[in-house]
Simulated scan of single mutants.
Amino acid sequence: MADIMPMAPPLGFIIFLGWRLMRPGLMPLWVGVPLGAFDDLFSGQPFGSAIFLWSVTMIALELIETRFPWRGFWQDWFTAGFAILLYIPAAMIVSGATLSVELLLVILPQIALSIMLYPLIARVIARADRFRLSRARRIG
């Protein structure tokens, strides 16, 4: 069973989380629909699964943002880790997999790798955002 399980983290979802947590006002609430659709088309998941999961994630992050507007890096990492911890098994359930103890043990490395990858993704996003803002200042 381990040879058929994915080890690669859901990079699209992690980048989506990173942008949403680093720049909360940059993406509107409805952006989970088109980005989730794009992910569904290229991930092989049933169409609509990422649309639903990304939209639910956007709503949950919006609720967290209104409750805790003064977040820091550790809280963002915890939030992203918790979202990843819920997203991967939820994506498996939506795709039709029957969760068992063995299956949950097999996806633990993918979950751990995804959570540990978030700080690196957040750093790349911060640099890209700084570049975006510096270009906007030069043009405007």
Rank of each mutant, 00 (worst) to 15 (best):
G36M: 01
F38T: 04
R137Y: 10
G18Q: 07
L104I: 02
R123A: 10
G48V: 00
A50R: 01
Y118K: 01
S95A: 13
Y118W: 14
A60G: 03
G72L: 03
R127L: 06
I14H: 08
P6A: 09
V106T: 04
L117F: 09
E62L: 02
L99S: 00
I84H: 00
L26S: 09
G48H: 02
V124I: 13
R135W: 08
A50C: 08
T66Y: 15
F38W: 15
A122Y: 06
A112T: 13
F82S: 13
D40L: 01
A50Q: 08
I125C: 00
P24I: 00
F47A: 03
V31K: 04
Q75W: 11
M27F: 13
L21F: 05
P46G: 02
F47M: 12
A91Y: 01
V94E: 10
I111E: 05
L85K: 03
L104S: 06
F68E: 08
I59L: 02
S134D: 15
D3T: 08
G96P: 10
V101I: 13
G72V: 05
L29H: 00
L99F: 03
V106M: 15
F47R: 08
S95L: 07
D40K: 01
I125R: 01
E102C: 00
L41T: 02
P24K: 05
M7H: 09
E102A: 05
W30C: 00
F78L: 12
L133Y: 14
M22D: 13
